[in-house]
Write a protein that binds this DNA or RNA. Sequence first.
DNA 1: GGAATTTGACCCGC
DNA 2: GCGGGTCAAATTCC
Length: 307
Amino acid sequence: MDGYGGGGGTKKSALASELVQVLSMVRELEARMDQDLPAAARELCGELANTVDRSIRIARSYCGCPAGGTTADSPPGHGDGGSGSDGNNAQAKRRKGTGTPCVRRQLRVASVKDMAPLDDGLSWRKYGQKDILGAKYPRAYFRCTHRHSQGCLATKHVQRADADPLLYDVVYHGAHACVQAAHPAAEELRRELTHSPGHAAAGGQGHDQDQHQQSSSPRAQELDTAEGLQLQTGLLEPMATYAFAAPTPGDFAGCFPLPSPTGVEWQMMRSSHTSAGNGMDLVGHHQFDDLFTNAAEPFHWDLYAAN
DNA sequence: GGAATTTGACCCGC
DNA sequence: GCGGGTCAAATTCC
């Protein structure tokens, strides 16, 4: 993903470019749906969401709006969503004594059954799964396979995003201290952990997104191309350490862990089925696969942000 | 048979 | 007391 840390002119240019791309994609999507190409349309929708996400981020950078809320998780005003973010905050507070740095990634899979992109090349062992309050999907807990044999304390948590079944939040805690430490993916993680806000004073806790947007790893690119994964490198962002406090109320880091860089919930509305002015929250209540597979009639998308 | 996963129970911070 | 994180016994898989 491109960086947007440049001057205002550069940002505006980037925003215009992104919006033009969005328009182009929407029209292409319409065309493809007419051609009855659900797979292509689905892929396009993923790109569309990413592009709009970037656009919102750029727009927010103009006004300095806090990036609260999320694309991935339920928004505060979305029924159970509020408690969902509460749960994430609770996670931030918990185990704060450890001061363990962590890195958060969001991975988009090609389909609800496609788990391959979640494989980061490292060896993990699942040790638990937990229903999270307010979250539609359980959170899975993994630790390094060599935890006992080599005392490696690396862990990761994986949770499917409420708003987008194809999007996974992956949070890595701790660097590998085992034989896997030499693995490129482990080295990259360690580098990111080292430069996470909990370690690096500079960067303003999440305001250094640009730096991380440019840190698309070789592994990520490999996954992106070889495994059909849309690794949203633009969503790759550091997380505050457990002991990290938000510098100012409402600031970026105060929303830890940031479910989304943009703070916007994206809802795809099927115009023809919109009702009572609220429409149908397809992302929240329907599986994309079902949506595209079962679409029996031409429809148009209204893509809008629901802050 | 060993490794991995599942799942209920427990621990701990708030 | 609540809820997230972890443990460990039971179960499944290879």
